[in-house]
């Protein structure tokens, strides 16, 4: 650094996060230290992504495959951009049951892809546990981009990053997760992560959308929105997954909006300055009112998307250290 500079030197960038495991399958299995290191490192990538030259060479020569058995625009493109900004080659594969219809099993697909020697597989699947099953059968790093109703770890990490940047901390905050908890992997991963980082987590939903014994996960449970939102710093509302509902869980979406829709009136119960999040894609007028969704002083929805890229860069970088040739050389003679 130039000695003539009068500027106060910026704090040193945090080092790349390290993870004990080769895969990121869920928040369960991460330690608080690992999660915090990932969040710290992601800050660097927020800055990098705001520069004109957004690209580094950390993953140069690496191949990342996005393997999506369920369609997704947001998550898939977020991983693709994150990988490209780190210099990796990326390939998007949407399977969506086409190969499965031809009789190929998940593990057949995994074996085929594994033979192409990718370095990282980002996998989304409609069945809980499917990504873990696949991870056992491949030689590369696997990142869970959502499995059934189980986990979606990078979503929770990006949500935590978004909140931390806006409010400066996670510990001590009160978070309400509202809506379709039953079908939601986002809810589960966020419950695990925000609790791990010291927040109080509530769930708010009509009873049929609450999974059995959800209180055993350490959350407090509310069925009335105004009670659930009381004193909350952050309200996270979830997409009502109508496509997953075999038997109707609710009489109608208009009744749902009446009792559980996040609008200005409902937010009056929360802490002044409350922030609203949604993992997307939104059902406007079902779980969230458009005025709230589009009000940038309340809604963090656009921030979540931006943080998603940075967060995934931090995850990819951390996992790349487990790849052959990926670990930094230990300093010689160090004792």
């Amino acid at each position: 650094m130039s000695a003539s500079s009068a500027k106060i030197p910026a704090p040193p960038a945090p080092p790349p996060a390290t993870l004990r495991r080769r895969h990121l399958l869920g928040i369960q299995g991460l330690s608080p230290e690992e999660a915090t290191a990932l969040l710290d490192r992601a800050e660097t990538f927020v800055s990098q992504s705001r520069q004109v030259n957004k690209k580094t060479t950390t993953l140069r020569g690496r191949t990342l495959i996005n393997l999506f058995f369920e369609s997704s625009t947001r998550t898939q493109s977020s991983f693709e951009i994150a990988a490209k900004r780190l210099g990796a080659d990326t390939l998007n594969m949407s399977v969506q049951a086409s190969a499965v219809k031809k009789g190929e099993t998940l593990l057949d697909t995994a074996a085929t892809l594994n033979a192409m020697r990718p370095d990282m597989l980002v996998v989304r699947h409609q069945a809980s546990g499917a990504v873990e099953l696949l991870a056992r059968k491949v030689g590369c790093s696997v990142i869970n981009a959502g499995d059934g109703s189980n986990e979606h770890p990078t979503q929770a990490l990006l949500d935590a990053l978004t909140v931390r940047r806006r409010l400066g901390r996670i510990a001590g905050l009160r978070l309400a997760i509202c809506g379709d908890i039953l079908h939601s992997r986002v809810a589960r991963s966020n419950i695990y992560l925000f609790q791990m980082l010291g927040a109080e987590v509530r769930v708010v939903a009509p009873v049929p959308l609450l999974p059995a014994a959800i209180e055993r996960l350490g959350v407090s449970v509310f069925t009335r929105l105004e009670e659930g939102l009381e004193g909350c710093d952050v309200v996270m509302t979830l997409r009502l997954q109508r496509e997953r509902m075999g038997v109707a869980f609710l009489p109608s979406t208009r009744e749902y909006f009446h009792f559980y829709g996040i609008d200005a009136e409902a937010l009056a119960a929360a802490k002044p300055g409350v922030l609203v999040m949604h993992p997307g894609p939104m059902n406007r007028g079902v779980e969230i009112d458009s005025q709230i969704a589009d009000d940038v002083s309340v809604s963090l929805i656009q921030d979540q998307v931006e943080m998603g890229v940075a967060m995934r860069m931090a995850v990819l970088e951390a996992l790349s250290q487990h790849l052959p040739g990926g670990a930094p050389e230990p300093a010689e003679g160090h004792w």
Binding site: S128, G129, S149, N150, E151, R185
Partner: peptide, 13 residues
Amino acid sequence: NEGELSTRLGLFG
């Protein structure tokens, strides 16, 4: 079985 474990595993009980 429906219960805490099905909730944790994200499986229907």
